[in-house]
Nucleic acid binder design. Structure first.
Lengths: 197, 197
DNA sequence: TATCAAACTTGACAGTGTAAAGATGATAAA
DNA sequence: TTTATCATCTTTACACTGTCAAGTTTGATA
């Protein structure tokens, strides 16, 4: 075995199976349902098996966060790919994907954004591994930036969609429960954004 | 004892003491440090005593959320009271108090806003008991509202400051770490707000 | 075939929430 | 003052959790 793809012995690919089980449990019963022992049981292994793949529960949560981030990026990119590529439709599609991911993966989204793991941090390595963050940045790029530069635009858009998504799934905001995307469009229009020359 | 102030028998006021202990534990060791048994120990009672005052751990968390909401409202109102009362300074002060509370009570703020308890809900009774929400609404009132009315303005401001506060304490946003209020001012200026005639 | 390291199991332990039943003590009625 | 009552709190018990240590199995390699 000289290549980099590690072929496990017994289970097949326990590490990935445990992550999948974890996400399932998360969506079925929320954060309190996510336990190492239940993940192990669902993957058909003993309760101590996960210890050989993750550094405790926190390690599994970190791995789940990583998996979640690729799902998250895919959700946003999928919406963006369905547009004509113009600045405003692209920005809105990005936000649409952001919000959709939160609604369709409530517990997972909450777990991810209440985490201070590597990919969720402002660290350079975290950012370079975070394609979701890159999508956000590139969606904001075509617009005029104020005196504080592109970062202020990015943070404004990010804060707005993050806050809206979070408050929505927490039931603290209720405009149109069926289609909150429509409601968010009004909020986005309050932002003073103009396409750069 | 015909008046409404209940005088407890043994402890004095165990219920409030447990809430205080809970908030302490929360700030000292984060959400994982908040356990019924530790709260009980800190209050000097047996581990099963809390059951007579709260419906399990979830009940205690609800009570902590309520206590936290009054602290939260006080933080915002305090900043507002120090202004001249004009619309923009008042709005900014409200946001300043919002952010300050998150920074100074990270674990508590996280607990509160990851909760679907009564006060945090869009229900009428929840809203009427939530002075923090009223402060937000009144801070947004003086401004011109778009075609979607005052609610769109409120949700835009709320989402922006909630998202920014949340991402800040999670270390996912870093403009000026010492004084993030200054950074938020730039974001708030991107919002297209004008004082109504 | 023998070796050996990785993958997994077994057993144990301290914490946790929660329930049931008993003890305590403040209040109110006698 | 004495007694009865009941909310308050304690004790005991149980299932579940994360984590550790030791043993066992497995499959690739020599």
């Amino acid at each position: 075995m000289t290549n980099s793809t590690v072929k496990p012995h017994h289970h097949g690919d326990l590490r990935e199976a445990l992550i999948s089980s974890g996400i399932e449990l998360l969506e079925e019963g929320g954060i309190t349902a996510l336990t190492l022992r239940k993940c192990a049981a669902r993957a058909g292994v003993s309760h101590a098996a996960p210890a050989h793949h993750f550094e405790g529960l926190q390690g599994l949560i970190g791995a789940i966060t990583n998996r979640g981030m690729t799902m998250f990026a895919k959700a946003m990119q999928g919406k963006i790919d369905a547009t004509d590529g113009l600045p405003f439709p692209t920005l809105f599609a990005m936000c649409e994907g952001y919000l959709s991911f939160f609604i369709e993966n409530q517990a997972l989204a909450n777990l991810m954004f209440n985490q201070k793991s590597e990919v969720m941090t402002t660290s350079t390595t975290g950012r370079s591994n975070n394609s979701a963050f890159k999508i956000l940045v590139s969606s904001c790029a075509p617009f005029k930036h104020g005196p504080m530069g592109h970062q202020a635009t990015e943070y404004a858009v990010w804060s707005l969609i993050q806050g809206f998504s979070h408050l929505s799934i927490m039931g603290q905001i209720s405009c149109t429960e069926e289609q909150p995307q429509i409601c968010f469009a009004d909020l986005l229009s309050i932002l003073n954004l103009q396409v750069a020359d």
